[in-house]
Amino acid sequence: MKNPILQIQDLSIGYKESGNETVISREINVDFEKGKLIAIVGANGVGKSTLLRTLSNLQPVLSGSIKIDDQPLDLLKPVELAAKLSLVLTEQIASKNLTVSEIVGLGRQPYTNWLGKLSPKDKELIEQSLAATHTLELADRKCHQLSDGQFQKVMIARALAQETPLIILDEPTTHLDMYHKAYILNLLKNLCVEFDKTIIFSTHEIELALQLSDNLLVMQSDKVQFGTPNSLIETGVFESLFPNDLIVFDKKTASFKVKK
């Protein structure tokens, strides 16, 4: 594969607590290409968030290796990693009184001086990020005045302002209505093309992901499969994703139907 931005080899993920390892998923082998929108799908508890947290170094690797831009993840200094990878998490931010432009401005921290002072170039980038996510008119709003959809866009603007080749989002579409789910994923798609970003996100919106993303990583308890939406549909992986007593996958329309 040409231009892999992220290389994962024999990776085992899970939790380590007082010597006891709980492996959630093992033997993950996959390379992510530059400039692609990649969805991670799978049932609840299969390890989507754990994988994302491990990739972003919030959680230690159990075994195997992760390389970002050909550099091993564990050898990167926090600031170096912050220049390669930005995050949008499911958690609420600690202070709800930050304004939108302050939140996006914090995305410049890896590049600002010891006091965190924003240069004219930083301010320009902040404005550019706000414009790219259609949040420019929200710039002076306080975070608690935003709707869930607006807040999600602002957090994406912050990740953009961090100027990283790789953006990781954990379930960016939860709490959103159907329109905004599609809106956010479409926005991510545009950012991939416009700014040549690699964007990896986990989601339960399999149908939307099949329509919009370049690649999918399908996680199941015993195996992990990676490919383009069409190739994955052909393998029949989606039929076996959930117990088939209630919903079935329809290959023609690439969507799930309730059994009648």
Binding site: S56, N57, L58, K77, P78, V79, E80, L81, A82, A83, L85, S86, L87, L89, E91, Q92, I93, A94, S95, L98, I103, L106, G107, Q109, P110, Q162
Partner: peptide
Amino acid sequence: LLGENYAQSLGL
């Protein structure tokens, strides 16, 4: 102010 995970992802 963004929380510890975000702070860490900003290189802190």
